[in-house]
Structure formats: C-alpha cells, structure tokens
C-alpha cells in the first residue's frame, strides 16, 4: 500500500544532512522503508550533499596520508567478501514491527508490553535514545484525543488502525509531520486500535485545561 501522507521536505533535507534529532530520524526511517516517493526525494537531498562536498575548498593531500592509505589497501583481502544475504522479510506478517524499530521495541507487535497512561491510551517509551522522545502509542478505536498543539517538531507514523483530523485520514504508512503551528485533534477510527510510533524533539505544549489531562500521556 502506498502512503498518502509523507515526510515534510524540510524533514527529508535534515535527514539527508544527518541533522534530524535521533528520535525523529527513527520515525522517518520507518516511513522511508516503505515509501518509494520519499526515498526518491531523499536521493535528491543527498545529491545536494554531494555538491556541497565537492565545493569544499581544500589543499592537495599530504604524501604521508596517501602512503598510509596505500598501506591500508595492501591489508585488504584480494577477493571481495561476499555480500551479506538479503534480509528475508515476510511481507505481510502483521506481527512484525518495521526494522528501524527493532533496536527500541523488539520485532514483535504481540510481544509489546503496553502501559496505560490515560483512559483508552497505552504507551511504550523508548529509553536511551537521546535527541528527543520516541514512543509507541496504542489508542482505543473511536477515541477523540484532546486538542493539542506542538512546541517543537513531532513526527508520527501509523503502524495499524487509522485516525482522522483536520489534515485528513491517516492509515498505515502515513506520517503526520507537524511543527509548533499545528493545532489538531485526532479521532481514531472505529474497529481496531490505532497503533503509531511518534517522536518529538521538544516537550508538547498543550492548549487550555487539557494540559493536565495530557501530562501523564506524554510524560511531562
């Protein structure tokens, strides 16, 4: 299935530049794994990096550095090591989490150990990521999340289920790439829980009285 909601151009650019905070980069990677359109835009962004690399002003390399490089080549085996076998992925295994999430949450959806943080909302927070917060959220079907806006960047990708908000309908593979100016109120679709992976690079700023309600949800 081809996603309908994609990474923001500014996000793609920063991903290519290696400048995206770690938590946001994980969610972007999950989307890139399944979105050819965004991979094409990433290649465009990498080409910009290539030209900027070319433009670096430099001197001729030192003779001793060249000699050291040749010594390293001598130490290389004559025959290229065989390429590692391609990752065999069962395409439609609904239990398998995307590979970019394995280091943080394991590889099985069923094995996840959810913790309730608000009525109808469960969460798992990744630990030790540095550079923002990364979490899985599981929201009961037909839930209306309190209205909120974002203090910084927030990137969310749906893994299962769906929700609707002012930006449209979000199903599996779709990303919501939001900054501080978005004020939205997702409503999850009926049927199955909405499971998504979300990352922020700054504490969420909530509008009005809902702040207290949401504090336990996002841990601030």
């Amino acid at each position: 299935m081809t996603p309908n909601h994609h990474l923001d151009d500014a996000t793609v650019l920063s991903y290519s530049a290696g400048a995206l905070p770690a938590a946001l980069a994980v969610v972007a990677s999950v989307h890139l794994e399944r979105c050819a359109a965004c991979r094409t835009r990433l290649l465009d962004a990498d080409q910009i990096g290539g030209v900027l690399l070319q433009q670096q002003r430099v001197d001729t390399p030192a003779e001793d550095a060249r000699a050291a490089m040749l010594v390293l080549l001598d130490a290389e085996p004559a025959v290229e090591p065989p390429a590692p076998p391609a990752d065999i992925v069962e395409e439609h295994d609904p239990d398998r989490l995307p590979s970019a999430l394995h280091p943080w949450f394991g590889n099985s959806m069923r094995a996840l150990r959810w913790r309730r943080v608000a009525p109808g909302v469960q969460r798992i927070l990744a630990s030790g990521i540095g550079g923002g917060d990364l979490m899985l959220l599981r929201i009961a079907p037909g839930s209306k999340l309190p209205l909120h806006s974002h203090g910084g960047n927030e990137l969310t990708m749906i893994l299962d289920g769906a929700y609707d908000d002012m930006l449209g309908h979000f199903g599996p593979g779709d990303v919501a790439d939001l900054d501080g100016e978005t004020n939205h109120q997702p409503v999850t679709s009926p049927g199955v829980p909405c499971i998504c992976v979300a990352a922020t690079d700054a504490p969420l700023v909530f509008s009005g009285w809902v702040a207290r309600t949401l504090q336990p949800l996002f841990g601030f």
Partner: peptide, 24 residues
Amino acid sequence: CYLESKSHSEISAELQMPLGSVKS
C-alpha cells in the same frame, strides 16, 4: 543543515527565527 548538522530547532534558536519560518 548540511555543513553544521544543525537541527531545525537549533537553527531556530541560533538565528532567533521562528521554527515554522526555518522549515518553510
């Protein structure tokens, strides 16, 4: 972005430019 590897938020803080303007 590319040559200093600064995030949007870092750029926003350093240049005193709103995050939304950095991104746009």
